[in-house]
Each structure stands twice: as C-alpha cells, then as structure tokens.
C-alpha cells in the first residue's frame, strides 16, 4: 500500500548539509501493523512527516496504492487516505474537541459518534467533547484526543508517532484494542506505529529499526524482536525497572 524508495531528507544547518533520513526504502503492505522503533533522534518522526507530506524528500520516491505521491500535498495525501497522529499534538484556541473530530471525519458527526471516538481512547466523552483543544488540556489528554481524531479519519493508512506517551492513566491494553479495532473495521487498512514500547512491538507484524537516518534492521517480529534486547540493555537500569513496575500496575 505504501512504499518508500530510497527516500532521503536533508536540511541545511549552519552552512552544512545535514542528512536526517538517508536513503530509506520500506514497504507497508495491506492489513499489516508495522512498528518503527530505534533510538531518539534516529529520524523516525521525520519519516512520518515525509509520509504525511509535511516534509518533501530531497531524494527518492513515495508511492501510495501504486501511485507516486512524492509531489502530492499534505491535503491530497490526507484525502487519499493517509492519517497521522503527531508526536507532539497541536493546540488551538477556540477549536473544540468535537470540531476537530468533525473535521477529521470530513462529514457531519453526531454527538454520539464523537463520544464513541473519545471513549475509545479512554476519555469520558461528556467531559471532553465541548472542551477547547487549548493549553488547558494536559499532555496526556491531548495525545489521546489526537488518537481519537485519527480514529475518526478511518484512513487506509494510519501513522501514530509514539502514541504511548499519553496513556498515563489509560492502559496499553486499550491502545492495543484501538489498533485491533481499526484493523477489523477499516477494510484492508494498515497501521504504522512509531514506538519504543515492548507491548506494542509485541503486536507488530513487522518491525523496522531506524538508526542514524537508516534502516538498521527490518523483518518479521519473530526475527527482529529478540535482537532488540541488546539495545534496551543500554537503557539505564532504573528506567527499565520503572517501566516494569508501571507495566505491572496496568496489568493489575
């Protein structure tokens, strides 16, 4: 469904060219859940922005449903069926949650339907539909609203950039249910999730590891997942401990 062929992205910084994405090639087939992982600063978010059309590759081509979309605008790609949940969601003054959901759905959405999207991300709909998507929302609330708007898009390809960051009081199981539900209800749809979370890596059909702007590893979960252990061992021990505790609490 989505194919990147030798995509590079280069910016000029202090007179010198900096290559953030270096000749990445990858495929997202239909009906798959792909997880992109790798160290911070590796170029994962830039890759997502290239797919959504927010950045244009300095070399290479992007295909969607067999069509070359390299020169297509953000709007055109959105209308073709690409949805993107930002790593850092945007705040708006005066635009309400329900307005964003309506825009995302691209049609009239009843209050009840809007509420369903919010409930799916663990927000009590009644408290949120009429809230403004402004600075009064916490980072976690904003992240979940961002996921809800992507749900409302019902897109062929949905890209989530570190969705786990906002799920403080919610749980991974619910997030995973959201993904499962999308795959079941949107025909032939695929999901690309950028994540570091083991539980999300665990449900991947395929894992792509991006490091220094390159694909370091790519393959089925069975192939790649065991080899990720070595990387996570680099993380400070207390981080890992905290994570284990948190995960344990959610299971309880």
């Amino acid at each position: 469904m989505l194919e990147l062929k030798n995509v590079s992205f280069q910016v000029a910084e202090e007179g010198t060219d900096k290559e953030i994405v270096r000749g990445i090639s990858l495929k997202v087939p239909e009906k798959k859940l792909i997880v992109v992982t790798g160290p911070n600063g590796g170029g994962k978010s830039t890759l997502a922005r290239l797919i959504a059309g927010i950045e244009k590759p300095t070399a290479g081509k992007i295909f969607f449903g067999g069509e070359d979309i390299t020169e297509k605008s953000v709007t055109e790609r959105a209308r073709m069926g690409i949805a993107y949940a930002f790593q850092q969601p945007v705040r708006f003054k005066g635009i309400r949650v329900v307005d964003l959901i309506r825009i995302a759905a691209g049609k009239k959405v009843t209050a009840a339907e809007a509420c369903d999207y919010l409930s799916a991300v663990g927000l009590c709909a009644r408290d949120y539909v009429d809230r403004e998507v402004n600075a009064s929302l916490s980072g976690g609330e904003l992240k979940r609203i961002e996921i809800a708007t992507v749900l409302a898009r019902k897109a062929k390809l949905s890209v989530f950039d570190e969705p786990e960051a906002g799920i403080d009081l919610w749980s991974f199981r619910n997030l995973i249910d959201v993904f499962r539900n999308m795959r079941e209800t949107i025909a032939d749809s695929s999901i690309l999730v950028i994540s570091h979370q083991e539980r999300i890596l665990n449900i991947a059909d395929e894992i792509i590891v991006i490091k220094d702007g390159r694909v370091e590893k790519q393959g089925s979960r069975e192939e790649i997942y065991p080899s990720l252990g070595a990387d996570s061992a680099e993380a400070p021990a207390c981080d890992r401990l905290l994570k284990t505790m948190k995960d344990g609490m959610e299971d309880a």
């Binding site: 927010i54 709007t75 930002f86 005066g94 309400r96 825009i103 995302a104």
Partner: peptide, 20 residues
Amino acid sequence: TKLMTLGLTEAEAEEQIING
C-alpha cells in the same frame, strides 16, 4: 499543517482556525 493532515486545504484550515 495539523488541519491539512485532516484533509482540509490551507484556505479551509485558515478559516477554521480564525472561526475558532
């Protein structure tokens, strides 16, 4: 950009932002 990723054109996005 955010509203454009939801399918609006730039002019439509501008209108929504100002209306809000």
